[in-house]
Simulated scan of single mutants.
Amino acid sequence: MRIGLVGFGVGGRVFHLPYIQAATEWELVGVVARSPQRIAEVAAALPDTPVFASLDTLIDAGVDAVVITTPPETRRELVLCALERGVHVVADKPFAPDADTARELIAAAQRADRTLTVFQNRRWDTDLVTLRGVLASGRLGEVWRADFALEQDDRSVLEQGPEGGLLRDLGAHVVDQLTQLFGPVEQVDAHLDWVGAGDARVDVGFVLGLHHVGGVFSTVSASKAARREDRRMIVIGREGSYESHMRDVQVEQLAAGLHPATAPEWGVEREDRWGVLAVGDGREPVPSARGDYTEFYRDLHAAIADGREPSVRLAEALHTVAVLDAARESAVRGEGTGLGEGVLPRA
């Protein structure tokens, strides 16, 4: 199938392009870029790939799907345009600024009878894939609670404006991860760290407490302004605990010049950073599973070909946005906020 990339900032260049290239089921038709800097970057990275000035001209060239990686404030219009033109769409996260906009996009995909999905690539993070295996083994027994963190020392990539902020950025990822592991959320307790004022006010950190329908309680924190790095996944169950401090393996490999299509140990954490399972009377390292964001694009191709929903379902995307809405409301009100009806994904 033929696919086009709309936008060539950090998201398009680092988090999408290598994995589209690695998924040989797809042919990259072209990239939409406008600024001289972005056009030059496309030419350097993809010398034989056409650059288009607009989404419409890219679609006119003939594509089956497009990937919208532009800033959040432009995403709604571009997603709607692509669906109206009859192509399948991958929307970068955050999927929408609020649940009402998410419902609007879902309705548009249904009217167009085209696949719309969200790039929740961190479902294929090395540490998350490894944790899935631990939970599937049943060795932790009944899970009681979980503690996640994704702290990054990088203020430069914070999205500004009313549709920006860290909650809708990293928050969209970690909420999706936790709901994938422990099911939908029915109540949220939240605190946000704010900087600026008025239209320039933006959240640069958060702590969320998620009450899952199935009984698990999870907490997650993140910041890009605290001048610290911390990545952890701790899960506590009736039979013991699992703790992981793996790195952002795939991003580090890309920064080192490796590529998911050719690196033999892609997405595998080195042994000294493996997570530890503590059950019974002992503690044991858990070998790293292989994380690979390429699986998102392979799954998307198979879903379109088979006429089924992709792994990242729209009901799940809506639920994630609703959790983020509830988190913002909770932070403003200073108390827990329940989710309204119509935002719990079906099993």
Score class of each variant (00 low, 15 high):
W266R: 14
G30A: 06
E159Y: 14
S244P: 06
E77H: 11
V185R: 00
T130Q: 08
T294N: 04
D125N: 13
V51C: 06
M233Y: 12
G334T: 01
D98C: 01
D92P: 07
H191Q: 11
T70R: 15
A82K: 15
D199H: 13
L208V: 03
L158Q: 15
P94L: 04
V66K: 15
N121R: 14
R238L: 06
P50N: 09
R298K: 15
G11N: 14
H16R: 05
D325K: 07
A45L: 05
W26T: 07
Y242Q: 05
A347Q: 15
Y297P: 00
A43K: 13
L55H: 13
G275K: 08
F119S: 03
S223I: 02
L300Q: 14
P184T: 02
I236N: 11
L166M: 08
G86R: 10
Q152A: 06
R132Q: 11
A44L: 04
D153N: 11
G340K: 09
S137Q: 06
G214A: 04
T49W: 07
V312I: 11
H191C: 03
A91N: 12
L140S: 08
V66L: 08
S156T: 15
W274I: 02
D48P: 06
W144T: 10
H191Y: 02
Q37S: 12
R145P: 03
E269C: 10
R145Y: 12
S35D: 06
W274C: 00
A107M: 03
L135T: 07
E84D: 11
R308L: 01
D92N: 11
H173E: 04
T70W: 10
G9C: 09
L178F: 03
V202H: 10
R122Y: 15
P94W: 13
E341H: 09
G62C: 01
F296Y: 15
R76L: 10
G9D: 09
V10I: 13
R145G: 08
F206W: 03
K224L: 00
T130R: 09
D100T: 10
A44C: 01
G62N: 05
D154A: 12
V10H: 15
P94E: 04
D48E: 01
S223D: 04
M246T: 01
V67A: 13
L277C: 07
G62P: 04
L254P: 08
A327H: 11
A317H: 11
D125L: 07
G291K: 15
V129S: 10
G133I: 02
L181D: 01
V79H: 14
R231E: 04
L192P: 04
V312A: 02
Y293S: 09
L314P: 08
G214F: 00
I106Y: 07
R114S: 00
T130I: 04
A45S: 12
D176A: 03
T24I: 04
D176N: 01
E41Q: 15
R2S: 02
V207P: 02
R333P: 01
D92L: 03
A45M: 01
R139Q: 12
G198M: 03
A326L: 02
Y242I: 00
V29H: 12
R290W: 15
S137R: 07
V323H: 07
P18K: 09
L167H: 00
L158S: 11
L55D: 04
G291H: 15
D169N: 01
L178D: 00
D154E: 12
R168S: 05
L277N: 03
S35N: 10
L192M: 07
A172R: 00
I236A: 12
W144N: 14
L300F: 14
A172G: 09
G342P: 13
V251F: 07
L166R: 06
